[in-house]
Write a protein that binds this DNA or RNA. Structure first.
Lengths: 199, 199
DNA sequence: TTGACATTTCACCCTTTGTTCACCATAATG
DNA sequence: CATTATGGTGAACAAAGGGTGAAATGTCAA
């Protein structure tokens, strides 16, 4: 993943700080080091670095910046993490398989692959056995297809819609009912960025 | 892939810059180094290098030139030969584009890729814009999806059925009629072995 | 529960960079 | 000799990068 000069400066600083202190700096400390007046400037750099896969962060957690080791990126081989059953929610198994994916399918951030079981996304022309390529993300926009963890244990592939203060997880299959839930009961695991099918 | 002298000069400069700085130069920096007055000159060289597979870039992103490691071809590069219109048969254009495809998709023989236009295979869950991976073959079995050349000039994507002494080319779309023809009027160009879709 | 400390978001801003268009020259090619 | 690829100029444009300032939200420990 490419990087701009400014981003590299920030990354080098993070690397240094983590190395010396053992914990990551706060946004304010980074801003001060680069003489920036606004934290949002820092924030955007961090998000850019995260999208490009150089660092990882926990949301709303102080000093939670971690470096991502360069080995695990930039490969066309993505982890195949298991099955996602669209009809009947099923636990996402962590396998140790890999699958090759064209580089053009890879997006900013971390990508992985799941194999679809069932017909719940059939109206989106995703059928049983298809491989879906996902971008690891914790948030989604309306209409995106996501893998979401419900009640912390069941993974399901659905279309995501935010409606007022509720979330609708909509299967693309007239025979199946949407799941209504709230923001705090689900965790978005990733957003579908591509599919592959073998005959 | 062949390369011109000028292109090699540019490539060497890129290699050097990336090696030393850790990020890629901007078009302006390249132009300055070669004393070029217009960015478009640089731009065209970059595109030439990209087409030849030496570098890769992200559109509209600063400093996003990456060298392509000639080793890392776990996914092979297949020729993208153009469009195949399923609804209205259209001539298969011979483009000079390429697209990476995972090795697992490759079968014995020659493979190539076409991009689907139209909805004629929608009931097989192949939708407009999908890439179909084909195995070059001149014969097909019943029920296989094929790209066939009709009357030597029109390529179309259909399901193949031999019925007595006739051939039925069946779209997977209730709104469309099958094409009835005979063995000597068509040429099978290839059989679909996979699809890929980008969102 | 209440602060203090951090992160995240919103509404703006200007600058840098990549992309495209029109047009030109020259060498290579069938 | 016409055509096509390469190499270029110059200007206009759109998108991404980089920033400011303030307000909102989250987390954690006293």
């Amino acid at each position: 993943m490419p990087i701009t000069r400014r981003q590299k400066e920030i990354l080098d600083y993070l690397r240094n700080f983590l190395d010396q202190q053992g914990y990551s700096p706060t946004l304010e400390e980074i801003a001060h080091h680069f003489s920036l007046a606004s934290l949002n400037g820092v924030y955007k750099h961090l998000r850019a670095l995260e999208e490009r896969g150089f660092i990882r962060r926990l949301t709303n957690q102080a000093r939670s910046i971690q470096l991502v080791d360069p080995e695990s990126t930039s490969s066309a081989v993505l982890p195949l993490l298991g099955y996602v059953t669209a009809g009947q929610p099923l636990e996402a198994v962590v396998n140790e398989e890999n699958i090759a994916v064209p580089e053009t399918f890879q997006t900013r951030g971390t990508n992985y692959v799941l194999q679809v079981q069932g017909e719940s996304m059939i109206e989106e022309h995703i059928q049983d056995g298809d491989y879906v390529i996902l971008e690891q993300r914790s948030e989604a926009h309306n209409g995106e297809m996501v893998v979401a963890l419900i009640d912390g244990e069941k993974a399901t592939l659905k279309k995501f819609y935010r409606e007022q203060d509720k979330i609708r997880l909509q299967p693309a299959n007239a025979a199946l009912e949407p799941i209504w839930t709230t923001e705090d009961k689900i965790q978005i695991q990733g957003v579908v960025v591509g599919i592959m099918r073998k005959y």
